[in-house]
């Protein structure tokens, strides 16, 4: 075996020395400052003109709990509607058919281009435009009887959400390598089946983080339905303070519940992300 060449002089062997720990002064000082500021804020609120007894009294009252249930029910249902619409519209947008493409683009433009609260008000007051709705010859009904606050909120929130979700889904589907689609076609799959079995499941991994985010936004967007009399959390909290004038206390009650819900949802979203990453984890070889 040929011997290795001799190493040059002047470069000592440092392998025996350890790297010293840095004191990170700036971190300690800034942390201390932040703690001081937070303590001051907490103290200010504690001494402010808030009757905390009202907050604790109304925190778990029946009307508030009903409000939370209604909020969550609406958030889940509207999100489901939004996801279904989002997938359909995204597929339409990526279709070779120009009519489908244009309809999809038009839907996205219309429902992303107007404020959500405006859409909710339009749905709720639909009977001003169409006093009766129905299928000619089959069924008709008064629009006001059909368009309850629940349905108006569901349609308003869900259809609006669909416009945003469709963009997320479209990005997700485009992120899947085109080779996947070609491999599916090569074994005889049609476009829709390839989308359903091969492309969408892979798109899910890319799509879950933004969708989880959208759902958290949806939970709070339901508060807009208070103006169309859907009895969600904010609406019910308002009714209480309309009666007893305790505006800030009841808003704090509502705010605390929203915070709690979001704090539970955030780690759940992370679990969901991990499940969809199955099969794509890079194992150490």
């Amino acid at each position: 075996m040929r011997p290795a060449p001799a190493l040059a002089e002047g470069f000592p062997d440092l392998s025996g020395m350890r790297i010293a720990r840095e004191p990170h002064w700036f971190r300690w000082i800034s942390a201390a400052l932040i703690v001081v500021v937070l303590a001051a804020i907490v103290r200010a609120f504690a001494n402010g003109q808030i009757e905390w007894s009202y907050v604790s009294r109304f925190l778990t009252v029946k009307v508030i709990l009903e409000g939370i249930v209604n909020t969550m029910v609406m958030a889940v249902l509207a999100m489901m509607l939004g996801i279904v619409l989002g997938i359909v519209v995204a597929i339409m947008r990526l279709s070779p058919n120009p009519v489908l493409k244009t309809v999809a683009a038009g839907y996205t433009w219309l429902f992303r281009g107007t404020p959500l609260i405006l859409q909710l008000l339009l749905w709720f007051n639909l009977a001003l435009v169409f006093p009766t709705i129905g299928i000619p010859g089959l069924w008709s009904a008064r629009a006001v009887d059909v368009m309850t606050p629940f349905l108006a909120a569901l349609l308003g929130l869900g259809i609006n959400q669909g416009a945003y979700t469709s963009e997320v889904m479209r990005a997700g589907m485009l992120s899947v390598d085109i080779g996947q689609y070609e491999a599916a076609q090569a074994i005889g799959m049609g476009r829709l089946r390839a989308l359903r079995r091969i492309v969408l499941p892979q798109a899910m991994r890319v799509v879950i983080p933004p969708l989880g985010n959208e759902f958290i936004g949806m939970v709070k967007a339901t508060s807009l339905a208070s103006v169309i009399q859907y009895p969600e959390l904010l609406h019910n909290a308002e009714n209480i303070y309309y009666a007893n004038s305790r505006v800030i206390e009841l808003l704090i009650v509502a705010g605390l519940w929203y915070l709690l819900v979001v704090s539970i949802l955030t780690p759940l979203q992370m679990l969901l992300e991990r499940r969809f990453a199955r099969g794509t984890l890079r194992l150490a070889r």
Binding site: D177, G179, Q180, E182, A183, A186, P201, Q202, G279, T280
Partner: peptide, 13 residues
């Protein structure tokens, strides 16, 4: 026909 691609294109999930 059956096709084998340069980049395999196996379904990762």
């Amino acid at each position: 026909t059956g096709m084998v691609f340069q980049r395999f294109n196996l379904f990762p999930h």
